[in-house]
Each structure stands twice: as C-alpha cells, then as structure tokens.
C-alpha cells in the first residue's frame, strides 16, 4: 500500500471526517496546498473553499466544503479546524455591534450597578421556595 497520512477534519459543532489519505488538497490563504505524506510541518489559515481527500486505491475523492479555518500539518497528521461560519473582520465586527445594541435595547433605563443585596435576597427566597416544594413532595 502506498504511503498515507492521517486526516482529521473537525468543526466546533462536531467531527466531520477522520481517516487515512494519500493526498489532501486544501484552500490556504496563500493559495491551494497539496499535502502528501511527510509534508513539512505547517500551520496556515484557510479561506472558504473545498477540501479534497484522496484516499487512493481507486477510491473516489471525498469533498468537504469549509468556510475557512485553520490547517495544521505534522509529518503524518493533517488537522483541519474548520469554521462553520463565514468569517471576516467586518462581519465579526458587525456581529459584535449587533450583540451590543441588543443588550442596550434590552436594558434601557435600568440602574447601572449590580445590586448585590437585592439579588441575594431574591435568590434566597427562590431557594427557600424550592426547598418547601421538596418538603411538600416528601410528605
């Protein structure tokens, strides 16, 4: 059998692919990479595109779409940390602003500092209620 390299493709929401391959192609930011076994160690960012995994032995090439991420190459292991979201600095910025705006809208007109005593008192009350319910249940 030809020489192979282990490929792991994972995203934050779950593992996507794991297996051996003779050749892997990935869309790096500096241009497409072809990775054969014993490739030199390399870490790079990926841009949106297609990862192709060639398992050899006449098997069909597998295709995976990634919307970016990070690629790490060790001599016998390729790890793709795939993004599931389209990422770009301005998109992230927009998401951050949106999250801020929502918080401001939701909290309009409230007092500025955390009122510890009030929170503590009401939480204690809630806990007491829960305990009372427990007791009632045991009866």
């Amino acid at each position: 059998m030809a020489m192979t390299i282990h490929v792991d493709i994972v995203s934050a929401e779950g593992a996507i692919h794991s297996g051996l391959a003779e050749m892997v192609y990935a869309p790096a930011v500096m241009g497409e990479l072809g990775i054969a076994p014993r490739h030199t160690p390399l870490v790079t960012q990926l841009k949106p595109g297609e990862i192709r995994v060639d398992e050899g032995d006449g098997k069909e090439i597998q295709h995976f779409f990634v919307s970016g991420g990070i690629l790490e190459i060790q001599p016998h292991v390729v790890t793709v940390l795939a993004d599931t979201a389209i990422r770009a600095a301005d998109l992230d910025e927009a998401a951050a602003l949106e999250a801020k705006r929502r918080a401001e809208d939701a909290l309009a007109g409230q007092q500025a500092d955390f009122e510890h005593a009030k929170a503590q008192a009401e939480l204690a009350e809630a806990a007491a209620q829960l305990r009372a319910i427990e007791r009632l249940r045991k009866k």
Binding site: A96, A99, K100, R102, A103, A106, L107, Q110, Q111, A112, D113, F114, E115, H116, K118, A119, E122
Partner: peptide, 13 residues
C-alpha cells in the same frame, strides 16, 4: 436577571 438587579451588560445573545 441583570435587568432586575442592574449590572453593566455589554452584549447579549
């Protein structure tokens, strides 16, 4: 919770 008791909330989801 923070709406009731205050506290600077910078962002929310």
């Amino acid at each position: 919770f923070f709406r009731r008791y205050g506290g600077r909330v910078m962002a929310e989801a």
